[in-house]
Nucleic acid binder design. Structure first.
Lengths: 183, 183
DNA sequence: CGGCATACTGACCGCTTGGTCATTTTGAGG
DNA sequence: CCTCAAAATGACCAAGCGGTCAGTATGCCG
């Protein structure tokens, strides 16, 4: 995965992968038919592992909607800050077109799952009178958008001008709770 | 650019690039020293062109803060929906590490410029009593995060489960204006 | 210890491709 | 129509890499 992330699919070198793994190049072919098969296996494995963590998130504790949202979003940030998850994310942005079925899985494990859970939290919040019904409830994607932004910004500009996580998270929560305009 | 976007740096093929350009492979080397030089030139040119458009955005018309924000954000979405801008964005995510100085330029032309302008709008809004001061004003990144999310989602999942732009934009504006919680 | 199957190795092969350069084409000026 | 310099060409080369396979190491069992 590291090799693929650093060099991309074409740039990745099987001799180097073998070296990193502490085995000989030929050994790879005892377990995988081709470079592509190895690549798909590596990506697929990590997509599954993300699903596992996401699954655990579904068991949210009781509490106010605000608490639930903070808990859920913090979990998302944690997952994205993880460098292996970021490696998968990055490589799927770059080379996802070559593997539509992996992209379907990835979508199901990330966006689909995330919006589903957010919808549950929000609808529960509407029922409790804690959440204002409206377009945000119908499009929960916008609530997790800053998470993705942070991950992308981190990948691209970590060495140019990093963004402080705590301030960003605070602003994220502040925005989704109150907005920034006075009506 | 198209070739690099489709195959990545390593996967891009100079014969094919020449063919697309309607010239012979050798001709490339009359103008560029190497594949890398060609790549950097292509990316650099598009980074500059994005700067140009961004520059134009600085001339915001007068109006309420809400109007200014909508105008500014709509401009950002338009820029990101453009397929060439997306190609540059995608390739910089994938291969930005190999060209730190390009990344610095790109950061200046996008995030830096965007946050600077947003800050101006917000501070003006605070002065006019239209904007609630707080962490969002200090971290305007979160206001443009959904734009980046939309672009990334579009790149990755266009063929899996596209998101309707109008609904998304509406939710974005709704969130930044009002938040979604009732306090 | 010996026999044997399984796992592993890395030198090797053939193909692809970045890069070169002797040769050809172009077109401006006389 | 000729000359000649600048531009363009594409066959060619060398290097690198995905993939193979004959040979070697390992370790279980009788």
């Amino acid at each position: 995965m590291t090799e693929f992330q650093e060099y991309g699919f074409h740039g990745a070198n099987l001799s180097r992968i073998a070296q990193r793994a502490g085995i000989a190049k030929g050994t790879i072919y005892l377990y995988y038919d081709s470079k592509e098969a190895l690549f798909l296996a590596a990506v697929g494995k990590h997509v599954v592992s993300i699903m596992g963590e996401s699954e655990a998130q579904v068991d949210v504790p009781g509490g106010t909607t605000k608490e639930l949202l903070i808990h859920f979003l913090r979990g998302m940030y944690n997952r994205f800050v993880d460098s292996e998850a970021q490696a998968v994310f990055r490589i799927l942005i770059a080379e996802g077109d070559r593997m539509p079925e992996v992209m379907r899985d990835y979508h199901a494990m990330t966006v689909q799952r995330g919006t589903t859970l957010l919808s549950k939290i929000l609808e529960r919040g509407v029922a409790r009178g804690e959440v204002r019904p409206g377009s945000v409830v119908r499009m929960p994607h916008v609530l997790m958008a800053p998470t993705v932004f942070f991950a992308v910004h981190d990948m691209m500009f970590k060495n140019v001008k990093p963004v402080d996580f705590d301030s960003f998270f605070e602003a994220h929560i502040d925005m989704l709770m109150n907005g920034c305009l006075i009506d």
